[in-house]
Structures are given as structure tokens and as C-alpha cells.
């Protein structure tokens, strides 16, 4: 990945030096070995903070909204999944195309940081990562590790059909082969096999855990309402009480609201502190094609 990181920094530096953009949003090393954190770079000297690798799970596209009224242009580093979000934001008129420079990086998958952290010596520093097809090698100052993708990668990456960004102005790194996955909706199919009662019990169990922290909504590049219905105080459509009834209203309303627009970036699923399988909820295809005459069993 060192080559990609180098190129990424060079491209970012060029953009900032040539004043093509005022800001580059990318990934920087986080406070855990297996985590990155969003970085906001506004000077050519700052580009050394940029990094890349299998720990760049965050979707940075949504930050573009924060700068839509800023005077200058903004560059953003995107993976394949994130690039779909950029298209969503463009289609929803949230950002204008001429103000955004998209730096696309082909992505071989992202590892779950908690799973990696459980294996690596605490406090170890990251030296280098490399993609070896079926696995990632992670070199640290406390030894070298290998993480096979099947067990350590985020679920969403296991069935990713867009390893290469679908929109970009600058591409950094080599294009990756595209695969199609018949099992992309396997988890949803499993759910569809259940009876209505079983489905209801399944989601009740999930929703009852919800803390209503709204991380799923806030991270979502489809959730762009200026005032969200769940934040309205007068009238208060949904109470602050967390119980199954209120939580269900929140999740089902949000699922309907993103239906047909969700780009399946999987961020809601990743950020949920209560591990609610929100991606599964948003993948439920009938939600995207809801018709009033649908039988009620489809949920």
C-alpha cells in the first residue's frame, strides 16, 4: 500500500498547491493500530497525514455537505462504495459537481478494526499493509500478522461489486477485477424465509436494543434533511423514550425514507454501537419497491 499512499499524498499536494481545492478530506492514522480517522487537510505541508489501507472503513462522502457553501473546492478520497454516495449526493442536489474533486482509490476490502485489535499486541505501531488476494498482511513494530478476508473483513466487503470507484476525477492505485456475487442478498433471503411472526420477533429483538444515538442516520449519505423528523420538538413525532414502539417507528421510518436511495455503503451497520444489522434492513428489497397493494407480510 506504500505506493498508493505516496501517490495519494502527491495528488493531494498538487491539488492544494495549484489551488484547485482548498481542502482535502482523506484518511489519517487513528489512535488504534487498526483504525483510521478522517483528516481535513488545507495546506500542501499537511498531506503527510494521509494514509490508505485495509483500515479505511469510513465513508467520507457525507462530509462534502459540510462544505457545500464554503468558498473553495473540496477533494475527497473515496472507495468504490463511497463513490456511490457521491453520486447520491449529486443526484440529490446536495453538492455541485464543479466544487468537488473526487480522488478514487480501488479498494480490496476493509477489515473490522475490533477483530484485528483483538489479535495484535496492544500498543503496537503500524508499519505497512499489503493486499495478498485472500488476505491482508499487516506489519507492525511488534511483529507481522496476516488476516484472511473471509474472517476479518466487514460483511459488506465480502460481497462488494464495486471495488473500483464508479465516479472519480483522479484514480490512485491499480484497478481491481470486478466480481459479481450471487449471494449478495443471502442474508435478506434467509430473512425472507421466516414467517411473519419470526420476522417480527427478530426485528423486535434488534430494535429493542437501540439507544437512539442516531449514529446510523448521521453517518448516512442519504440522510440529508435539514431538520430530521426525529429531531423535531414541536410536534414531537417520536418520543425520546427508548422502547420497542418508539425505536421501531424510528427504524422503519428511516428504512422507508432511504428506500430506493440507499447506496448500500453499509456505514449504518458499521457505526451502530448496538450491532443492529441495519444494512440487512435497508437491503430488504420490497422497501424499495413499496406499493400500497402489497400484502402486509412483506416486512
Amino acid at each position: 500500500m506504500m505506493g498508493v499512499i505516496q501517490q495519494l499524498r502527491e495528488q493531494a499536494k498538487k491539488l492544494l498547491e495549484e489551488k484547485k481545492v482548498d481542502l482535502v478530506i482523506g484518511f489519517g492514522q487513528g489512535t488504534e493500530l487498526a483504525r483510521t480517522t478522517p483528516v481535513f487537510i488545507d495546506s500542501p505541508e499537511g498531506v503527510s497525514a494521509l494514509t490508505w489501507g485495509p483500515f479505511c472503513a469510513n465513508n467520507l462522502a457525507k462530509y462534502l455537505i459540510d462544505y457545500k457553501n464554503a468558498p473553495g473546492n473540496v477533494a475527497v478520497v473515496v472507495k468504490g462504495c463511497d463513490s456511490r454516495s457521491v453520486i447520491r449526493l449529486l443526484d440529490d442536489n446536495q453538492i455541485s459537481r464543479d466544487k468537488v474533486v473526487i480522488i478514487g482509490v480501488p479498494c480490496a476490502g476493509q477489515l473490522e478494526w475490533q477483530k484485528v485489535a483483538a489479535e495484535v499486541k496492544p500498543g503496537a505501531g503500524l508499519k505497512e499493509t499489503a493486499d495478498n488476494g485472500e488476505s491482508f498482511s499487516v506489519k507492525t513494530d511488534a511483529g507481522d500478522y496476516s488476516f484472511n478476508k473471509k474472517d476479518y473483513m466487514l460483511h459488506r466487503c465480502l460481497v462488494c461489486e464495486n471495488p473500483n470507484p464508479v465516479i472519480s476525477d483522479i484514480t490512485v492505485g491499480k484497478e481491481l477485477p470486478v466480481k459479481n456475487y450471487e449471494e449478495r442478498f443471502a442474508e435478506v433471503s434467509e430473512l425472507e424465509q421466516m414467517s411473519t411472526e419470526e420476522k417480527s420477533a427478530y426485528w423486535d429483538k434488534q430494535f429493542s436494543r437501540c439507544l437512539r444515538c442516531y449514529a446510523c442516520r448521521n453517518v448516512c449519505s442519504v440522510c440529508t434533511c435539514q431538520v430530521c423528523v426525529f429531531d423535531q420538538m414541536l410536534p414531537m413525532w417520536v418520543s425520546k423514550r427508548t422502547n420497542l414502539s418508539e425505536n421501531t417507528v424510528f427504524h422503519i421510518t428511516r428504512a422507508f425514507h432511504v428506500a430506493g436511495r440507499c447506496v448500500d455503503c453499509g456505514e449504518c451497520d458499521r457505526v451502530c454501537p448496538m450491532d443492529i444489522p441495519l444494512r440487512k434492513l435497508n437491503q430488504l428489497s420490497p422497501l424499495g419497491e413499496f406499493k400500497p397493494e402489497d400484502p402486509e407480510e412483506f416486512m
Binding site: T37, P38, V39, F40, K62, Y63, D66, L211, R212, C213, Y214, A215, R217, N218, V219, V271, P273
Partner: peptide, 16 residues
């Protein structure tokens, strides 16, 4: 600095 820029404004930190 970056800390507020990257904050997505969810309540996770306060609730846990």
C-alpha cells in the same frame, strides 16, 4: 481542529 470536523454529531459517546 479536525476533532469537531470529523464528529458526525451522534450521541454514541454520551450514551455509552
Amino acid at each position: 481542529g479536525d476533532d469537531y470536523k470529523k464528529c458526525i454529531g451522534c450521541g454514541t459517546c454520551t450514551y455509552v
